[in-house]
């Protein structure tokens, strides 16, 4: 029996994540956590698609994805940090990240992702328990009418009721802007002077999954706030 064509593109099943392959991140809020996709989340289910046609850029989809994978952290907006796996964006690798949960938040949310899928034209992240979003996000490139188009598409629910509240109070808009800026940065890096990102947002399921409300016990937002607020105390006690 021959192996399926996608055999090497998927991560192996993993029960608990390990961030051992990441260096430089101040907080590891991912090791020991399980993955949590759109089915395990709490809030309404959204499909968000952000795309930028790379008009005038003579690069194939494969070349765009190779660049995106190789320099992924540099395309993120400046107020967020992505600590890439040492092995690069490859199936089964974990990355850590620090992002603001809501506009103007006093602390950054420390969480991460698992690369669940990667091939020459796309790669997909899935979030762990505790992340504000239970999601997977696919980054891809394709040729449309002779133009290479780069795209980020998220299928996401917020993870718990507090995350849903934050999402409604500006977190969703901030998240949209985050990916728009990421695509703008990618397009500029590839040579475009004025990239125009197209955004399409569709609600797939308006219902909230109340049976998942207990996800709050994993909340990276609460964990990060607790660690940040108690950091001075821990620093003092460690000197004694």
């Amino acid at each position: 029996m021959t192996a399926p064509r996608d055999d090497g593109n998927w991560a192996q099943p993993v029960d608990r994540l390990s961030a051992a392959g990441v260096s430089g991140a101040p907080v590891d809020a991912v090791s020991g956590k399980r993955l949590s996709g759109p089915l395990q989340g709490f809030g309404q289910l959204w499909q968000k698609t952000f795309r930028v046609p790379l008009e005038g850029i003579e690069l194939s989809p494969q070349e765009v994805i190779a660049t995106w994978k190789a320099s992924f952290p540099t395309f993120w907006p400046k107020d967020a940090s992505f600590y890439a796996p040492l092995a690069g964006i490859a199936p089964g690798e974990v990355a850590l990240l620090d992002v603001s949960p809501v506009p103007g938040a006093p602390v950054k949310l420390s969480t991460g992702i698992l690369v669940v899928y990667a091939d020459d034209e796309s790669f997909t992240f899935m979030t762990p328990e505790g992340h504000m979003l239970s999601a997977w996000i696919t980054f891809s490139a394709a040729t449309e009418d002779g133009v290479t188009v780069a795209q980020a598409q998220a299928l996401e629910r917020t993870s718990d009721p507090f995350d849903e509240l934050a999402y409604k109070l500006g977190g969703s808009r901030m998240n949209n802007r985050f990916w728009e800026r990421t695509l703008e940065n990618l397009a500029r890096h590839l040579g475009m002077s004025e990239p125009a990102v197209e955004t399409r947002i569709v609600c797939i399921d308006r219902h909230r999954q109340w049976r998942q409300a207990r996800n709050v016990r994993h909340s990276a937002t609460f964990r990060t706030m607790r660690l940040t607020l108690t950091a001075p105390i821990r620093k003092l006690t460690s000197r004694r």
């Binding site: 064509r5 899928y117 997909t124 997977w136 696919t138 299928l155």
Partner: peptide, 11 residues
């Protein structure tokens, strides 16, 4: 063959 887009469709 199934890629991550296919999994998204299943969801």
């Amino acid at each position: 063959y199934m890629n991550s887009g296919g999994i998204g469709l299943l969801v």
